[in-house]
Design a binder for these strands. Structure first.
Lengths: 257, 257
DNA sequence: GTCATTGGCG
DNA sequence: CGCCAATGAC
């Protein structure tokens, strides 16, 4: 079984390469973030024609999430249900082949003194409550997506210079680690304890991929039963090197069975 | 000798295909219209590297003309010099290998009840005066470019429906024919008296090229001494069929010697 | 439909 | 740098 995540930065702009990637890698579950399109513009047919089911919710210009699956996703739900902003275009959940999947596009936060950063930290608290209320660490559960946090120094180029970045600030680290305490393991780090592997490279940094100047902010996190079956987890850098890439690339985890 | 014209609809967007076309066809003179770029952004070096001289004048977003030549163009001039609007980015003249060349991007006219249509008709009158004042029908002279008029019913798909189009209206026909009375021969029509051959296909018409639903609004017109040497004149439809084409394509005339 | 523009965003 | 949006031209 293969579970992957990809921030597409516009699924319409990335459709040709996405279809190629689906054909080449045949993931069982692929979570997409930043589809950046309204539901009526979503390239549903092309993805179905490639042999996949898909559930999605988007809006004009911003956000937008999708789950692309070999099997039909069950119990598809969008957003929070806790009385706060639902953020339905940032959170999609489903059950696929008996595995619960939560695909998130966590708010980036803008700046640590910005109201959106407070919102981001709150988003992690709400996420933890959701996991506690609706899931168990004993069940097969995968949390995937663009979580907009690099956790350890090894997860970002020049960590010392990023202390006040909303994606590397200490409060963000703690917020993320608190959700992980529910029972999640970061699969890429499990399989690559010491490697500077990044999943996002800012367009504005020249030759960022070649110079390996990026961030690891896209994750596949799993509870124990899945973690035990995990065989590998890697970033696929090839799509980031192609023509007209997303600024993010794919993180792919492979499991027994 | 080969003289050609091409409305590029952005020379920067069309640069790869233009360079390929230059390499393949090696024109002696190619007039470009709608370069749509300021002079500092003009892809001068790429064209020189392909083995051509080039003279050009453009502006941001709109208009822009160029002459791309095997030999260095002499006596290069831009625009009218009659006291009216010079329109320097719509008219370029030069002498190349002893042949006088006038490359025009005539105003489209918007609509027959629009002030720009009056301006277009006036433009043709100014053009005739320029030919009369500065050229002779006895000299080798080529008037090339996007003239934004289809002259005969055969020059446009569904002529009956185009009577009120600023590119097919009777006043436009007369304005154009009056300039031709200076001594110009329409070379494509000379070599193809009965064929529905078009040089422009609206992007908005689906499969316009395959259905041959277009306009002939790009011309190579010559005075007698050149007309006598003319061996062929054709529209090259291939560039219009490629990826990301201009809405216009090349008209190419071949001459003895 | 395909250019170009400006402006917002990350 | 490369998405998005809106607008204008043809």
């Amino acid at each position: 079984m293969k579970i992957a995540t990809f921030n597409a930065n516009s699924i319409r702009s990335r459709l040709p390469m996405l279809l190629q990637w689906l054909e080449d890698h045949q993931p069982d579950i692929l979570g997409i973030q930043e589809t950046k399109c309204q539901d009526e513009d979503f390239p549903l047919e092309a993805i179905r024609d490639a042999g996949f089911h898909v559930a999605f919710k988007g809006e004009k210009s911003y956000n937008g999430v999708a789950l692309i699956c070999k099997s039909e996703p069950q119990e598809v739900r969008f957003g929070f249900d806790d009385g706060g902003p639902a953020d339905e275009t940032r959170l999609i959940r489903a059950v696929v082949d008996g595995v619960s999947v939560v695909n998130t596009y966590v708010p980036q936060g803008r700046a640590i003194d910005h109201v959106m950063y407070k919102y981001k930290l709150g988003w992690y608290r709400r996420l933890k409550k959701m996991f506690e209320a609706e899931y168990s660490p004993d069940q097969p559960l995968a949390w995937i997506g663009d979580i907009n946090i690099a956790v350890e120094p090894i997860d970002v180029n020049n960590p010392a210079g990023k202390k006040n970045d909303p994606c590397y600030h200490i409060d963000a680290h703690n917020a993320f680690l608190d959700v992980c305490s529910f029972g999640f393991t970061d699969l890429l780090r499990k399989h690559h304890p010491d490697e500077e592997i990044y999943s996002f490279f800012d367009y504005r940094v020249k030759n960022a991929v070649e110079r390996n100047m990026g961030w690891r902010i896209d994750y596949v996190l799993t509870t124990a039963s899945l973690t035990e079956k995990s065989l590998a987890c890697d970033v696929d850098l090839e799509p980031r090197k192609m023509e007209k890439p997303s600024d993010h690339t794919f993180v792919v985890a492979e499991f027994e069975g």
